[in-house]
């Protein structure tokens, strides 16, 4: 069989041309979500706050899982990372298929579509953090600490991992349309296996035979260290451990590289598969 053909063109691969497109897509992504609603962008806060209240009631006042005070702030400091990750992955998974008409008719850098979904949720993440940081500074004295300065780096790590994962999902979903449904089904148990409403070090409650489970939850589920890398400075006022931080750097870069590679491999024939 003949090898793949080559396409060469002048100017065409000039990515700079598409910066305005990227910004338009992101603005559209954000506006589309809140357009036509009475509270507009205030909705950014509604979902995390509702979740925070509900989970606080269940996991703190009903089950008393961990004794961390103030629990609602501990919870939301981990929840923001999860909400960003899960909403981005879910939105990106179907993004290419949803825009089939565009992919089939116009040539532009297609990775901008899933990436704009992630960036749109990134805006939500930043807005949430802009609210949580001052609230934590007021109610959690430990956070008044220079460790908070690492937070932007943590957010970049989370965003990089999420972007890589989302690129991968969006491309694979073109070929296997059930990927988005599988993901939907996985997200709920995944949420419970991620230390968000509990903390991994309090999990075994002294039961040493459960230590392997704690370790597995902490490192086997790659989202866990990313929750920690944000929550440590944001709520506990401490730098993430070197192990957590290095894990996040390596994993986020690995996802970015793998995601770009998968996307590039699959994107050429996308217009035909859709």
């Amino acid at each position: 069989m003949a090898g793949p053909g080559r396409v060469r063109r002048l100017l065409f691969e000039d990515r700079q041309r598409y910066i305005p497109l990227a910004s338009s897509l992101i603005r559209r992504e954000v506006r589309q979500r809140y357009k036509g609603s009475t509270f507009g962008l205030l909705w950014v806060f509604v979902a995390p706050i509702t979740a925070m209240i509900a989970y606080s009631v269940v996991f703190h006042y009903v089950f008393r899982i961990v004794d961390i005070q103030p629990y609602p702030l501990f919870l939301i400091s981990g929840l923001v990372t999860w909400l960003f990750f899960s909403a981005s992955a879910l939105g990106a998974a179907s993004s290419i298929v949803d825009r089939a008409a565009l992919i089939k008719k116009v040539r532009f850098p297609r990775e901008l579509i899933p990436l704009s979904v992630v960036a749109g949720h990134g805006v939500t993440l930043l807005a949430s953090l802009a609210l949580i940081v001052p609230v934590n500074l007021i109610f959690v004295p430990e956070t008044r600490n220079a460790a908070l300065l690492i937070l932007p780096v943590s957010v970049i790590l989370v965003a990089t991992m999420t972007a890589g994962f989302s690129l991968m999902l969006s491309a694979v979903n073109v070929y296997f349309r059930d990927v988005e449904h599988i993901l939907t089904a996985l997200l709920l148990p995944w949420f419970f296996l991620t230390p968000i409403f509990y903390s991994p070090d309090v999990l075994p409650r002294g039961a040493e035979e459960l230590d392997w489970l704690a370790q597995l939850l902490a490192w086997g589920n790659w989202v866990s260290p990313f929750v920690d890398v944000v929550r440590d400075p944001l709520f506990f006022g401490q730098l993430p451990s070197l192990a957590t931080f290095s894990y996040c750097v390596v994993v986020s870069l690995a996802f970015l590289v793998a995601g770009s590679w998968v996307f590039n491999r699959l994107q050429a024939e996308m217009a035909i598969e859709l």
Binding site: P4, V7, I272
Partner: peptide
Amino acid sequence: IIPPQAGTI
């Protein structure tokens, strides 16, 4: 929008 299997464009 789609690549060729062989040849140069």
